[in-house]
Design a protein around this nucleic acid. Structure first.
Lengths: 192, 192
DNA sequence: CCTTTCGATTGACATTTGTCAATTTTTTTC
DNA sequence: GAAAAAAATTGACAAATGTCAATCGAAAGG
């Protein structure tokens, strides 16, 4: 399973086998069945998690029991609750597996060590953070400036893979609309 | 003006006068009158900008001429278009001064040098990035899960200062609602 | 001090989106 | 392959938000 991670790092940067071995020495492995939690609301997040295979989501549950998905993540992506991880506070979110998934976990402190002992890896992680920031910024822009239909179109364009693998109700949740509204967008009334 | 920056850095970290002098050697200074641009759509962003005083905003203008404000920023905050800065692409956004402002600019490349020669500063900047990520994540969560009224209440609670200094129409734009809707939230119909 | 401008409010109405319940369709399980 | 469960669709209606135009009020400039 670590091979996926190796290939990922090699694709992004120039790294020696020795350095990869160092990273591996800090890694833990985990498999999750469908619907199993990686993190539950109230827990403190301790790991940076790399997804070797599968499909995950991060979401909250509000007072009325409605789920709000803030993120999907799949192979070669990282997932965690950065707020909880960074500040050691209980998480507001749940993270669970939409599909059976294989994960590589790096403990917070070990991650720090790994980033310092293998600088190219440290740089890679910082680059990811920068890119994630930009992605979030763009999502904020979209969500305050687009109609429900535009949001859906953009989602399909940006994440065609998710559009196929994720149940519609979850996509609606991610977009901040109801499943019914999404269904109606997709099946417009018989054209006049 | 650099004194504001010094105080800011000293508050967040332990740094010597020599190191601060190094940072100063990389800094440029800029004053903006009300409504002046720091960055215009289509430009490539070249600077990390620290706000020594004043109030700025980042926004886009859509096809219908509507403005969408993605961020306000004031004293002791950083502002730039990270996407443009990072990837050297033309910016989708405008940045301008809501109030007369004083800025300290760090050229992209010089910033890199500064972060490397003064590691505590590098760490500070990375910490800011992490926090910004978390703030954006929380904003995404809020915007997909809250009503217009809740968004406004949260805005006032989180940024009481902005709520006073920024024209209402701009707050509405930031929240992704129309000025009329915001006005109605604030002035509910005669009770009952 | 007067006039002009900009921001905020309000009304009337249109449009979008949500809610709830009932089906229908698809997927899963045995 | 039949039964059960989950997901998606649809209808009728309600609530939230947007649009456009008019008005009001404050403050900015001469």
């Amino acid at each position: 399973m670590f091979e996926v991670f190796k290939a990922y790092v090699r694709r992004q940067t120039t790294i020696s086998d020795e350095e990869l071995a160092i990273l591996e020495s800090h890694a833990k492995f985990k498999k999750l069945r469908k619907k199993q939690y990686l993190l539950q609301e109230g827990d403190v997040c301790r790991y940076h998690c790399f997804i070797a295979s599968g499909l995950m989501r991060t979401y909250s549950v509000d007072g009325k029991g409605n789920e709000h998905i803030i993120r999907f993540a799949t192979k070669d992506w990282w997932i965690s609750d950065r707020e909880s991880l960074l500040f050691g506070v209980p998480s507001k979110f749940n993270i669970d597996a939409i599909e059976e998934s294989e994960l590589i976990l790096f403990d917070k402190d070990e991650m720090k060590v790994a980033m310092e002992t293998v600088p190219v890896f440290g740089q890679l992680v910082t680059d990811i953070l920068n890119k994630s920031f930009v992605i979030n910024q763009n999502r904020i822009h979209e969500v305050i400036s687009s109609t429900a239909e535009e949001k859906y179109q953009n989602f399909v364009k940006r994440y065609p893979d998710f559009a196929l693998r994720v149940p519609q109700a979850m996509i609606a949740s991610y977009l901040g609309i109801t499943p019914e509204t999404l269904s109606r967008l997709r099946n417009p009334k018989p054209k006049k």
